[in-house]
Amino acid sequence: MMAGHMMLKVAAGFVIMLGLLAGWFPLIATVALYALELLVAVLQAYVFALLTCLYLNDALHVDH
């Protein structure tokens, strides 16, 4: 979450710095990064839940 949020803020800062003329390109990048962050947000929760299940499975089924 940390790296992605920092990248988002940097890209959003570029939008302000470049202004109306060239600011559209980092704006597109910001939207794309936001979509990526949304994906990562869901993926992290999924991976955490899946690994929890795997650890519990290891704890429950020792014999195989």
Partner: peptide, 24 residues
């Protein structure tokens, strides 16, 4: 509970000016 909590923290953190709990 674990899944929904992490998901909610992550997604709420994407709102501008919100704080991302799971970033720490």
């Amino acid at each position: 509970t674990l899944f929904t909590f992490i998901l909610a923290c992550n997604v709420l953190g994407l709102i501008p000016y919100a704080f991302t709990v799971t970033s720490h």
